[in-house]
Write a protein that binds this DNA or RNA. Structure first.
Lengths: 129, 129
DNA sequence: CTTGACCTTCACACTAGTGTCAACCATTTA
DNA sequence: TAAATGGTTGACACTAGTGTGAAGGTCAAG
């Protein structure tokens, strides 16, 4: 598929897709005319990238971890460098921290919303009565 | 405490603290000399803000939700506007999405790390033997 | 009273990611 | 063949958040 279709299917502006390519995240092959040609499995990839960026993971890091996530479970190349492993551990921990932060704050918001809903319901009932 | 101490305790550059003030997130009172004076409870607040920003929540949104998180559990002002409630619901859902994204990817990374560790251990054992 | 540490504001610069526009090429369709 | 649609690169602009430095005020210690 070409860039426009991928943009629709992954709900990602073409501008961003080209930017991701510039960052080495999604590098499509080219047709004779120079058009970018994307394989269908890249839809998920684009969505994944968007989600990660939106969650505060910079493209440089995404570029590092994507190849690892691509491999089938438990497959590790022989030439794995301990330096990359350190980065991965670090990023894993950062993500865990983010998850904790987001979870705590989301739960607080959720609680607030429920309280507000309850208050609103009470007020409505009172008005009706 | 003054801005330097808060910076150390919350591990946040003074530049960012002033920026947060500009965005209305933490507005300290001022001493006679013009120095910013922070209450100790703002340490947690600064950390919280940093965590949210790092997790992809923009300061405009943080400014909206912070007041809600400040209230003791279940306390909702009488004049709650349904418009704010809509924003809160939206943000709650976005955060849930982020949490899911991060969790999935973190788990994948963790799995990869474990596999790499195992592979490394095997190789070390083989080398020794 | 001067030095040093800390504070003030202001401003310029930088990265990341995206929007947008210009100028042009390709493909389809009326 | 001309218009519409969608693709290409390149450039410029913008927001968010932070770094950094200038020019100056405050205060405690030597």
């Amino acid at each position: 598929m070409r860039i426009g279709e991928l943009a629709k299917l992954s709900n990602t502006p073409t501008r961003s897709l080209r930017y991701y390519e510039e960052q080495g995240l999604i590098v499509p092959r080219r047709l004779e005319n120079g058009y970018r040609e994307y394989d269908p499995y890249l839809i998920d990839r684009a969505i994944q990238i968007r989600g990660l960026i939106d969650s505060g993971v910079p493209t440089k890091i995404i570029a590092l971890i994507l190849p690892c996530l691509d491999k089938p479970r438990g497959i590790v190349p022989d030439d794995i460098q301990p330096e990359l492993l350190t980065i991965l551990r670090d990023e894993r921990d950062k993500m865990t921290q983010r998850i904790d932060f987001l979870t705590r704050n989301r739960d607080s918001i959720a609680t607030y919303i429920e309280a507000a809903d309850a208050a609103l319901a009470r007020r409505t009932a009172a008005t009706v009565a």
